[in-house]
Amino acid sequence: MTSEKPLPAQQKRTTNQQIPLQSQQKKTTKQPLPKIHAIVSMPLLTKKDLQTEQYRTSTIEEIEERMSEYVTGLQNTLNHECVHRVHFLYNESNVVDYVKAHVKINTTKLVFNRVEDPLHQATYFDFAYKKLQGEIVMYTNIDVYPGEGFELINKDGLISKKLMYTLTRHGKQEKNCDMSKTNITCDRKGYVGSHDSYIFVPDGPLSPQIRKALNFRSVVFGQENVMIHTFRNLGHFKVTNPCKVLFVYHIHCSNLRDSTRSRINTSANTGRAPPTDTLK
């Protein structure tokens, strides 16, 4: 019979030896990633738009760059590990053709859905409540894409506390400019009321009161403040802005902007949600 050589004193095994907490954490089962359903839409801008009032002072180069930004935002959203599906809302088939020609990666996540008016704010929430009941929904601008922190989203918590996250964007170095230098970001010291992405779980029907309150075009100024006010007061959501935990990034290096955009929020329907560092 062979005998085991004694171990050095510092390596001796004891029956009551405690496993370090760090080692215990490594042995725990990794939490599954949340399955997020993103809802997006985008216009198809062409040279013809230079003849419109919105873009009459723009150039074809700005239009082409803006379309490239839309595609990049969509592709980055598709590439995110927590995004399960991207539901693209449209009412003109040529925009679908454009997306199919320019988006080449993770296309199995992309689902096209024809709707009456993809630029009407109520359309996004009608779609979410009719098609995505019980799912984590992220309605986001096409030029805003998810970044860090999304693995921390908990669907049960969203439902039990009736939470809606309305995120202020961050900025970083993009292909053609440094978006961190813009003055409307979560990092800014003074909160200015700008929001870009909304995360929630549709549970039950969308009330007619909310649908009526969202009866406006999604491109107008102040629409996010009206939505915060609406879902907080009519939907009874706890609307917060944990943009210090959940990072979304904005791409708008081009100088293309709709010159006819109007503002719809007033002192009576303006909701605010300053940045926080908690998901509760």
Rank of each mutant, 00 (worst) to 15 (best):
E81L: 14
P274I: 01
D126F: 01
T230K: 05
K104R: 09
R66H: 08
T2E: 12
T2A: 12
V71Y: 08
R66I: 09
P118Y: 00
I251V: 15
G271P: 05
H229F: 11
E116T: 14
S3W: 01
L33I: 02
D97I: 10
E4L: 10
R188P: 03
N94F: 05
I63L: 00
L45H: 04
R85N: 13
R217E: 13
F112C: 06
E148F: 09
G149Y: 09
K30W: 07
H236V: 01
N106H: 15
L7Q: 13
Y124K: 05
L234M: 05
V86Q: 08
K280S: 15
F247H: 15
M67L: 11
T72C: 14
Y129T: 04
N79I: 01
T123I: 04
T182M: 07
K172V: 04
E81T: 12
A213M: 08
C186R: 11
N241M: 03
V103R: 04
E64H: 10
L214D: 05
T230Q: 03
T276R: 02
I210D: 08
K5C: 05
M179K: 06
R188M: 12
Y249P: 10
P146V: 00
I60A: 03
A213R: 06
L256F: 06
L246T: 14
I136P: 00
T29N: 13
I199K: 00
A268M: 12
D126V: 04
Q173F: 00
N113M: 01
P146N: 09
Y90S: 06
